[in-house]
Design a protein around this nucleic acid. Structure first.
Ligand SMILES: [Mn+2]
Ligand SMILES: [Mn+2]
Ligand SMILES: [Zn+2]
Ligand SMILES: [Zn+2]
Lengths: 169, 169
DNA sequence: CGTAATATGAGACATGGTCTCACTGCAGCG
DNA sequence: CGCTGCAGTGAGACCATGTCTCATATTACG
């Protein structure tokens, strides 16, 4: 029933988005709806460019500008969340049926591991409170050498570019 | 004796850098030394561009390329540390006589508050270990509304960040 | 010195992301 | 039903940060 599930997810996301937009006096236009769908259809972590590409492939018009304009909305609506920041390019991931989590990245092969650690989240809120801040968000990204890369030790983070091992789904 | 102090700091940094470079079979060239000095002379958090600018102003030649090439070295040597990532631009800060810390940024006015919270650091190591990673570094950046901006309750009320309550499957 | 390895500098280049602006489609009005 | 006002859109010009190239300059060292 993999399909029924994603359909449900999509519906849920659209509903949520609609509510969000209404609160903001914005409209759920065809373009925005298409972006939501395409976003949810992306696998695991995806770079923005992939989303734009995807829209274009689906024949649906969708310009870079529109996508970039929509992203903050989707994020604030809780449909997407920023995932990994690698150098200059940010990647996102769906956030609808998922619990919040952060990322651990291998500096050797690029593998990304997700982790969920409530204790850390709590301490973050604690820190913010201690400074009188109202916490809105955070970005936590650990980096190190994965088991595999540690084994083959040696070569200075070599250049085994892109281990798209990811995880996603 | 503000001056004696910075001088000492500078000497310490240079010594440390030299040791580091030696271990790596690299040389402490005039350019690299100048960059170290200029870096330590920067105030608080500074964007890379400011460092380049500073070198140029001191009459010392120092090309963008050289600075960018040196930055990872200074960082690994523990003389600088990446500070805040705001949009596309990274800023650094001196790390010599300082303890490691992370940042809390106000989304309203941009104010940056530093905090040190050992418990979080420990948990991070815990997470890495749990996944068999050898932790090399991390980036933690909280964002929220500072006391001042909260008071002035200005716009942007909306988005109450999604809590942990979720689920959908 | 002489020579090879290393480092530097100026600027060309790549690239993610933002801005501009003409245009479109639709809600509200007469 | 035509207007009209305006949020929204799309194509691409534009911008800024950071990377690469390659000719030149230093350095180590026999
Ligand atoms: Mn993730
Ligand atoms: Mn700091
Ligand atoms: Zn790895
Ligand atoms: Zn503030």
């Amino acid at each position: 029933m993999r399909h029924g599930l994603t359909a449900a997810r999509r519906r849920a996301a659209l509903a949520r988005f609609e509510r969000f937009l209404e609160r903001r006096d914005l409209r759920l236009t065809p373009a925005r709806a298409a972006i939501v769908e395409a976003a949810l259809a992306q696998p695991g972590h995806f770079p923005i460019e992939a989303l734009v590409e995807s829209l274009r492939r689906r024949g649906i018009r969708g310009s870079k500008a529109t996508v970039y304009r929509a992203l903050p909305l989707l994020t604030e609506a809780g449909i997407l969340q920023e995932a990994v920041v690698k150098g200059d390019e940010r990647s996102y991931e769906a956030a609808v049926g998922r619990r919040h989590h952060d990322h651990l990245i291998c500096s050797g092969c690029g593998t990304v591991v997700e982790f969920e650690y409530p204790a850390i989240e709590i301490l973050q809120r604690e820190v913010a409170a201690r400074h009188g801040f109202e916490l809105e968000g955070h970005h936590l990204q650990l980096s190190g050498r994965c088991p595999a890369c540690r084994g083959r030790g040696a070569g200075r983070g070599g250049d085994l570019r892109q281990g798209l091992a990811e995880d996603g789904s």
